[in-house]
Design a protein around this nucleic acid. Structure first.
Length: 358
DNA sequence: AAATCGGGGAT
DNA sequence: ATCCCAGATTT
């Protein structure tokens, strides 16, 4: 067997120190009340790239709406998207439903217990597989997220770029040696909790760290220069013209986005990207527009890899003149809340309400 | 290996 | 402004 962790590392003492601290200091989080595979699964999907405080209310509502795998498996897509509205990375909830259906229909309702099998499920990658297996099933499997890489890069003084995929594997190999054999779930959560509460990115609280004596970075005073992470390039700007188009009854035209790609399947005010002649673009798509005007409405919305700079235009469209497409719908203002809108669109709609246009 | 996929909070 | 967050999937 190849050893990844240095011989003089006091593994058992480290496990004890971490677990004692975790048991005393762990936060009282809703998904820790019931650690069934389904509860852990839902929480871990929501927590991907998303902060604990953001997730809590979504998690509680989601478990009320879909209390078990059968409920989620047979829920309508509109219902699961609505429950995810505002949380971001919407493919997560679609993948979750696909995977839950597979468990219900192919695995007899039992979440698979092996890394190999569970990893075939949509949306379950290396981290989530390890989290479910260790927390719900008590298996000695690593769960390497951003917290764990930061904590371990400091404790073990690992300087590999954590943005590279190979680096995550290196941490997993270390963890197969380090992980506590008696309580792997608490050990993994302890590492993450330590990263969230003590071993924070810019100003770690090393003075009160329960594993300070094990930390090689602290020993030489370089904890704040770890982990090493190459920075990524800035998002690209995209000019957007959004249209608030109402018919003679005051119904609003909304559009369903394609089922692939950015914000897939969510609803929005009709929009065009980088049009030189906005009114012409609007008329070409939807037919003759009355009282078309640019409003003072403007929304800047930042995604991970691009920035939408949205100008809001408004006008009236007669139902009989409108070029209607399958993806579009005129809806009464009171019905808007039934649809799932991304945050950028919620900002636009809020503005329209404030102006008294809706 | 690099790009895509949301949104919010801390610094 | 920049980084980070209990990452996974697609290209």
């Amino acid at each position: 067997m190849v050893t990844k962790v240095e011989k003089n590392f006091k593994t058992v003492q480290f496990q004890t120190d971490l677990l004692n601290w975790y048991r005393e200091n762990k936060r009282d989080l809703p998904w820790r009340k019931q650690a069934t595979p389904y509860h852990v699964w839902v929480s871990e999907i929501m927590l991907q790239q998303t902060r604990v405080d953001t997730v809590i209310p979504y998690y509680e509502q989601f478990m009320r709406l879909f209390p078990n795998m059968e409920h989620l498996a047979y829920a309508k897509e509109e219902a699961i998207l609505k429950a995810w509205e505002g949380l971001g990375y919407y493919s997560r909830v679609r993948n979750l439903q696909v995977a839950v259906r597979e468990v219900v229909e192919q695995y007899g309702g039992v979440v698979p217990r092996t890394r190999k099998e569970i990893s075939t499920l949509k949306g379950i990658g290396p981290y989530t597989a390890g989290a479910i297996l260790s927390i719900a099933y008590g298996q000695r499997e690593p769960a390497v997220d951003g917290n764990v890489m930061r904590v371990l890069s400091r404790i073990l003084h690992i300087s590999d770029d954590i943005r590279k995929a190979a680096t995550r594997k290196k941490f997993e190999e270390c963890l197969y040696e380090l992980i506590d054999p008696d309580d792997p779930g608490s050990f993994n959560q302890g590492l993450m909790e330590l990263g969230a509460l003590i071993c924070t990115p810019t100003s770690p609280s090393c003075g009160v760290c329960p594993v300070q004596s094990h930390c090689q970075a602290f020993a030489v005073g370089i904890q704040t220069s770890l982990p090493v992470k190459t920075k990524k390039k800035k998002p690209k700007k995209v000019a957007i013209a959004s249209f608030l188009l109402q018919d003679e009854d005051g119904h609003v035209l909304i559009e369903k986005r394609p089922d692939q790609g950015l914000l897939a399947g969510l609803w929005q005010l009709p929009l065009v990207e980088s049009a030189s002649d906005v009114k012409a673009a609007c008329v070409e798509r939807y037919g003759e527009v009355i009282a078309f005007e640019k409003t003072a409405g403007y929304v800047k919305h930042v995604f991970t890899h691009l920035v939408w700079e949205i100008d809001l235009y408004k006008g009236m469209l007669r139902k009989q003149d409108a070029h209607m497409q399958e993806s579009h719908r005129f809806v009464p203002v009171a019905d808007l809340e039934q649809y799932t809108f991304p945050v950028s669109q919620q900002k636009l709609l809020s503005y329209a309400f404030e102006e008294g246009w809706l």
